Structures are given as C-alpha cells and as structure tokens.
Simulated scan of single mutants.
Amino acid sequence: MTKISVIMPVFNEERYIRKAIESVLSQSLTDFELIIVNDGSTDSTLDIINSFNDDRIILINQQNQGPGASRNNALKIAGGDYVMFLDGDDFYLRDTLKTAYGEISSKDCDISIFQIIKYDGDGYSENSWFNLDNFPEEFETRVFNPHDCRDFLFDISVSAAQKIFRRDFLENINAKFPEGIYFEDMPFFFYTFLKAKRVSIIKRHLYVRRKHEGSITESVDSKFLDTVPAGQILMDIFIENGWYDIYLFDLLAFKINGPRYALMGIEEKYKESLYLLIKKDYESIKLSSYYNDYLENLGPVKRKFFKDILKSDDYQEFKTLNQTNSSPAK
C-alpha cells in the first residue's frame, strides 16, 4: 500500500501550482500518490497539471464545488496509509513527507502536527500560532490525548495542511469537510482532533504557506461571510459529541470572536450582509436552551457585541450602539 496520499485542491492557481507539484514530486520519500483536484479552474491550471508526466499523480477534474467538496472527493479515492493536504499556492520542503511519515508511523498516532513557515516571495517569516508555541514544552517529546490540551485547545492552528492523518482513523470516524463554505478547515480540525486518541507534534517547519494578495487569510472579503455557518457547524459538532459542557466557556468565546473580528475587518460593502447573518444566528440562539450560557459566560466585550446585535435592526444602528457603549476588552 502507498505510504501517503497528498491531496491538493486547486482553483485558478496558474501562478503557483507548478512549484506546488514539483515540491511533492521531488520529495525524499518517494512512496506517495498526489491527488490533484482541479475544481473548475478557468485559467491555465489544468494545462500545467497535464504537463507533468508522473504516474504518482491522480487527477480529478470537476466542475467548481469548493474546497470542502474537493477534499472530500479526494478522500474517497485516497489509498495511502496516511493523508496530508497541500494548497495549490503553497509548497513542501524536501523532507516533509519523510519527516511526517516517520513521526506518525513510529509513534502510532492518529494525527501529527508540524510547523508552518510563511513565504512572501522575498523571504520567510514565522509566527507563534504556526510554530505551535502554545503547546507546553513537555508535549514535544510525547504522545498525548487531545483532551490534555483543554486549556489551549482554541489556540491551536486549525489548518488541515499542517497535519498528517492516519487514513483509517479518518474513515472510522467518518471525517468530512463541510461543503459549500470557506473556513472548512475549522470544523474539520476540532472534530478530528477531539476524536483522536494519540497525537504528537513535530517542532520543525515542514510546510511553506505562500503569503500573497489572493490568499484567503490576506484579504477580508466575501469569503468571511462563511465565518457564521462555520461557527454554527462547530457548535453542532461539540453538542452532538458531548463536548459542549467540557469546553463551554472557551467554545462560546471562540464562536463569537470569529464573526466579530470578521465584521470589524471585512470590506465595507459586505458589512451589512455579514451583520444580517450574525443577527439571524443570534436570534436562533436566543430561542434556544443555550441563550443563558452566552449571557453568563461571555466576557464583557463579547457579551456586549452579542446583545448589541440582538438590539439593533441594521448594521448602522449596531455600529452606533457598539461605539457609544464600549466596554474594556476581556
């Protein structure tokens, strides 16, 4: 059986995909399959993919379905013992597969997490989140249970590309990415991570994330409307799996903060639309049995945001309320 299935969903990545593919094909570990999902690209992405002649490449050519569906479609045919994800504008270092495979296989883990380094075209940069600095030093040399991370669970990077997964583990828990939305990594991470029994971390940079204007994390545009449905899916996962009461305080803060930060940073033309999505979500919460949990467990800034959304009828009214009655950040 193949050791690793590398899954690469791509949409209009003609500027970067050649480097991404080459970074996989040149790996020091050679026993892999590269499943590329061309998600309805309209530029020269498909031509670039077809220019490679390597029988380890498996191509899925589909109409545009989004990143979640693309990854799910690849998972259906993945034949490797382990699964990794690579975005079409990023790339691996030469020993990425060898190092990740050696870690997860030797320690018999369900998931191993490694470091990411950013590249802007001129040089490399690090940050604490992608460097896994939130993990105490003792975690670096041992296998641990995800619930050992209770105190910092919501400070762990959710990126699927930062991890290697045991494939039969993903199959056994029926792991799937949410489809039809962006930020699909987030619910997928929390579900798979908290379902895992054995996890390890690798304090080495194995993945290079390219920083550019078109990347989802660099521009707060209409994609950030999906912070609302992604948060709703997350809540359902925690409730359905009996994790809600365990993580209630940090979970509710995390749920509020995603759309809250998005509303502050999103382009002006999308603010009303995002406000309305948040308001609809909060109105459904107000009618649910969880409403008092929000009022009793949110810090003052997040509680005020929550209540001001409910009080207001449109974004401008909310903006006035939220500005004139500001509270200290907590």
Results as ranks from 00 to 15, higher is better:
D39A: 00
P146R: 02
I246Y: 14
C149W: 00
T320M: 14
I202T: 08
V228A: 01
L59H: 09
A175R: 00
S215L: 02
K286D: 11
A69V: 11
Y247D: 02
R204I: 10
F177W: 10
Y270V: 01
I17K: 05
P146N: 04
A160G: 04
F169Y: 09
S128Q: 14
V143R: 01
K163N: 02
F32A: 01
D81S: 13
S112H: 06
D89P: 00
I35C: 08
E13T: 00
D89T: 01
S215G: 05
Y92N: 14
R71Q: 08
R166A: 03
A262G: 07
P178M: 00
N297W: 13
L295Y: 03
N72C: 12
Q63Y: 12
F165L: 08
K203F: 07
V301E: 10
I233L: 08
R260P: 03
S215T: 11
V208D: 00
I237Y: 12
C109M: 07
T192I: 06
Y101T: 11
T141R: 12
I237Q: 06
A161G: 13
S128I: 07
D155T: 07
F152K: 07
R209K: 15
W243H: 08
A160I: 02
I57G: 09
I48L: 06
V83A: 01
M1W: 08
S327G: 12
F254V: 05
S105F: 05
K195M: 12
S326E: 14
L276S: 15
K203T: 05
I233M: 03
L132D: 10
N127T: 09
Q62F: 10
I246D: 12
E283P: 06
N64D: 12
L86I: 08
L46P: 08
L251H: 11
H212V: 00
L25W: 04
G40K: 06
E103W: 11
D308L: 04
I111Y: 04
G102M: 07
